Computed example of a mutant assay.
Amino acid sequence: MTIRAAANLLTHEVKRADLGDNLAQLERQGKSGAEYRRRLHLLEEVVSDKEGAAAGLEPGDVGLTSEARLARIDAARRALRSQYTARVAKRSLVVLFGLAIVGAFYLIFMQ
């Protein structure tokens, strides 16, 4: 979603505000906001690459070829997806473990 949000100016601004708000909430709670910082950085990186291309800069002028930029964006997308997958798997295990405990209590105490 972060990379897709960079597709146009409006979605970019909304996503940046959303990520910034989420980061601020986590920091107020004393939690780490590393994931949101990474996403903000990724969003700004994609937008700066687009702005450089729109300004007529050649890929070598911005420091990387377009293939290298795309590879970097794809690597960031894969990293975010793997983090999300790991988080969903952990939550699923917690839910299944909770259901097993509830089932065990039901069998023990409802006989």
Results as ranks from 00 to 15, higher is better:
Q111V: 11
L70G: 05
A34T: 09
R91H: 14
G98N: 04
T85W: 09
R69I: 09
D74L: 13
V14L: 14
Q83R: 10
F105Y: 13
D61N: 08
E35C: 03
G30L: 08
L9I: 06
Y106S: 15
L70V: 06
G63W: 06
G30A: 06
E13Y: 03
L70S: 12
L23M: 12
T65V: 01
L80I: 00
A34E: 15
L43S: 06
Y84G: 00
L43Y: 10
V46M: 07
T85E: 12
A104E: 14
G56M: 03
R16W: 10
L40I: 07
H12K: 05
I108E: 06
G20F: 01
G52K: 07
V47D: 12
A5P: 02
F109Q: 06
G103Y: 09
F109G: 09
S92H: 04
L80Q: 13
L42Y: 03
G63S: 08
A7E: 15
N8W: 10
A55H: 02
S32G: 10
V14H: 09
A34V: 01
A71W: 04
L64T: 00
L43D: 08
A71H: 12
A6H: 10
R91M: 09
A53Q: 10
R39P: 00
V94R: 08
F109T: 06
L40W: 05
R81L: 13
V62C: 14
T11A: 12
R38E: 12
F97N: 05
S82G: 01
G56R: 05
V88W: 01
V95E: 03
S66M: 04
R39Y: 03
S66I: 01
R39A: 12
Y106E: 15
M110I: 08
L107A: 15
Q83Y: 02
V94F: 08
G60R: 09
A6R: 04
S82D: 14
V46N: 02
E44Q: 14
A71P: 12
D49F: 07
A79M: 14
H12I: 00
L42N: 05
G56T: 02
V62D: 12
L70Q: 15
L10A: 13
L10F: 08
D49Q: 12
V46L: 07
Q83N: 14
A86M: 02
A68L: 09
E44G: 06
N22G: 13
K15G: 00
A34Y: 09
T85M: 03
A75K: 15
A104Q: 13
F105V: 10
G30T: 05
K31C: 08
E58T: 06
A71Q: 15
D18M: 06
Q25P: 01
R39I: 00
A6K: 11
A34N: 10
F97Y: 02
V94E: 11
K15N: 05
A89P: 02
L43T: 05
V47Q: 13
T85V: 04
D18A: 07
K90S: 13
Y84V: 00
G30E: 08
V14K: 12
K90Y: 09
Y36R: 01
T85Q: 04
Y36M: 04
R39E: 15
L70T: 11
I73F: 15
A54N: 06
E13N: 09
I73Y: 14
R77P: 03
V94G: 01
L19C: 03
